[in-house]
C-alpha cells in the first residue's frame, strides 16, 4: 500500500498502535512515511505514550508547509527542539517523566527478548488461543490470512448473552475481554493477546473461563 502511495506521488500515514512489537513491521523497507503507535499494547507498558516516526518525505511536507501547524502542542517543528539532536534541549512542554521511565524499561525488555522473537511469540500464542477457541466451536471474524495475532475478534456464540458473559468473566475471573465496536457491537468479542498478556497462563485462563461461563 505504501509503495502504491509513492507511485502516485502521495505520502502515507500508518496506524501501528496494535502492531508495534507484535507483528512484522519494517518502516524503512516498506517505505512508510509517517507512523504512530501506542505504549500499552505489544510493548507491555502503561498507556499514555505514542511512539511516532517521520521519514524524509514526511519531514519535507512538514517543512514546506504554507500555513503553521494549528496545534501548538503537537507541532513537531517545536517538539523537536526538545526531543531533537544534540545536548541542548529547549523546553517545549513537561515530559511525563515517570511514564517515560516505563517506556524506556519496556524497550529494554523488548531488546532483551529480540524484536523478531516478540513477533514469533505473539504468533505462537495466537495460534494456541485460536486452536482452543475453535475447539469450542467458536469462529473468527477476520479471514485467516488477514488476521492480526494480537487481537482475536471472534463471533459471539449463538444464544450467549454478550454483556452477561463479559461481566461474569470480569467479576468471577478478573478477566477483561473486549466488546465488539460499531457495526460489530453485540456480534463479536475482541480478545487481546498483546505484550506481557501474550503468555500461556492467560490463554489457559481465558479458554477455561470462557468455557465455564458459556456452559452455565
Amino acid at each position: 500500500m505504501c509503495k502504491l502511495a509513492h507511485q502516485y506521488d502521495c505520502i502515507n500515514i500508518v496506524d501501528a498502535v496494535t502492531s508495534l512489537g507484535g507483528v512484522e513491521l519494517r518502516v524503512d523497507e516498506w517505505e512508510i512515511d509517517a507512523i504512530y503507535s501506542g505504549s500499552q499494547k505489544c510493548l507491555s507498558a502503561m498507556p499514555g505514550i505514542s511512539p511516532i516516526s517521520f521519514g524524509d518525505r514526511a519531514i519535507k511536507k512538514l517543512t514546506n508547509r504554507k500555513t503553521p501547524v494549528t496545534s501548538w502542542f503537537l507541532d513537531l517543528n517545536l517538539v523537536m527542539g526538545y526531543w531533537g539532536e544534540g545536548a541542548k534541549r529547549t523546553y517545549h512542554h513537561t515530559a511525563p517523566v515517570n511514564t517515560l521511565y516505563g517506556l524506556h524499561e519496556s524497550l529494554v525488555m523488548i531488546s532483551e527478548e529480540g524484536l523478531e522473537n516478540s513477533w514469533a511469540r505473539h504468533q505462537k500464542n495466537h495460534e494456541s488461543l485460536r486452536d482452543g477457541l475453535e475447539a469450542m466451536g467458536i469462529s473468527f471474524l477476520v479471514k485467516k490470512e488477514d488476521r492480526l495475532p494480537q487481537l482475536n475478534a471472534i463471533f459471539i456464540p449463538e444464544g450467549a448473552d454478550d454483556a452477561k458473559v463479559r461481566s461474569t468473566l470480569l467479576n468471577d475471573y478478573n478477566l477483561e475481554i473486549g466488546a465488539g465496536l460499531g457495526a460489530y457491537a453485540g456480534k463479536v468479542w475482541r480478545i487481546g493477546l498483546m505484550g506481557y498478556a501474550s503468555r500461556k497462563e492467560n490463554i489457559t485462563l481465558c479458554l477455561a473461563a470462557l468455557k465455564n461461563t458459556l456452559n452455565n
Binding site: 498502535v17 508495534l20 524503512d28 503507535s37 511512539p51 513537531l76
Partner: peptide
C-alpha cells in the same frame, strides 16, 4: 522497534490518539 533510521523518531507525550493527531 520501528526498524528505521529516521531521526525524527520519538514518543509523543500522550496516548495513540495523540500520535494519530500528530501525524
Amino acid at each position: 522497534i520501528f526498524q528505521t533510521e529516521n531521526e525524527l523518531t520519538m514518543p509523543v507525550s500522550a496516548p495513540g490518539s495523540a500520535g494519530m493527531e500528530t501525524c
